[in-house]
């Protein structure tokens, strides 16, 4: 690489840093998600999650079809294992938090604010670490519901990307698992009496880095 190219590469890096640090990132206004969802064509196959918008005939034929399915195939259906279902729920929790622009109920980068906030709301105390110096800023926390129990959701930010870290008590340790789901990366492990699920649209390496920083902070 000649001197000119080296200089160009350096300048490119500097510009990159300035754009990353200073250019305005236009996050979608919260109403936009609602507007888009409202404008999508209705999907007759969708199971209603709120309200009954379908007529009796449709519902009863669906019920009949389901009964036939259940009778005919019920015994042979392979259900996804517990972790797979949990991974779906974890992604859903992450997406919901992003959709409603409501990632945290307690918005603070101070772990001494976030940790006590959970005290009256959960019967366990999730470990909360400030990893700002390591590039993962604590944004806040909120409650969520996973695996049939209330869990702590801690929100961290790396560059423009949010990471949701779901924490709840674990019966034992579990080795690290990496999962990719719907374009998100997930990490799951259990240790020190806690279950951890981390989910983000960050790339897998950076998410691993996040997990490493957590482990170090916990030591």
């Amino acid at each position: 690489m000649d001197a000119e190219e080296t200089q160009e590469a350096q300048e490119a890096m500097q510009l990159r840093e300035r754009i990353k640090g200073e250019a305005k990132y236009h996050a979608a206004p919260p109403r936009l998600a609602a507007r888009i969802l409202a404008s999508l064509p209705e999907d007759p196959a969708e199971i209603p999650r709120s309200g009954w918008r379908w007529n009796i005939a449709w519902v009863s034929s669906a019920v009949a079809a389901l009964c036939v399915l259940a009778l005919g195939l019920g015994m042979f259906l392979t259900l996804p294992n517990a972790d797979d279902r949990l991974a779906d729920d974890v992604v859903a929790g992450h997406v919901r938090a992003l959709m409603v622009d409501h990632a945290s109920d307690v918005a603070s980068s101070d772990r001494h604010t976030v940790k006590p906030w959970f005290a009256g709301k959960l019967d366990f105390s999730p470990p909360v670490f400030d990893l700002t110096a390591q590039g993962f800023a604590l944004v806040g926390g909120r409650l969520d519901y996973l695996d049939r129990q209330p869990v702590a959701a801690l929100v961290y930010r790396h560059r423009q990307h949010l990471i949701n870290l779901f924490v709840w008590p674990a019966a034992g340790d579990a080795p690290l698992r990496r999962i990719e789901r719907q374009g998100f990366h997930l990490l799951h492990w259990a240790g020190g009496g806690m279950n951890y699920w981390a989910v983000s649209d960050l790339n897998a390496d950076e998410l691993m880095q996040f997990r490493l920083m957590l482990e170090k902070a916990a030591d």
Binding site: A28, L32, A33, I36, L40, A45, V95, L98, Q160
Partner: peptide, 20 residues
């Protein structure tokens, strides 16, 4: 999952990137 649900899960997470 139905089409709408799948669409929500795959595409909605990138709303910020789309809007930006």
């Amino acid at each position: 999952a139905s089409k709408t649900r799948r669409f929500e899960a795959v595409v909605l997470p990138h709303l910020d990137a789309a809007y930006n």
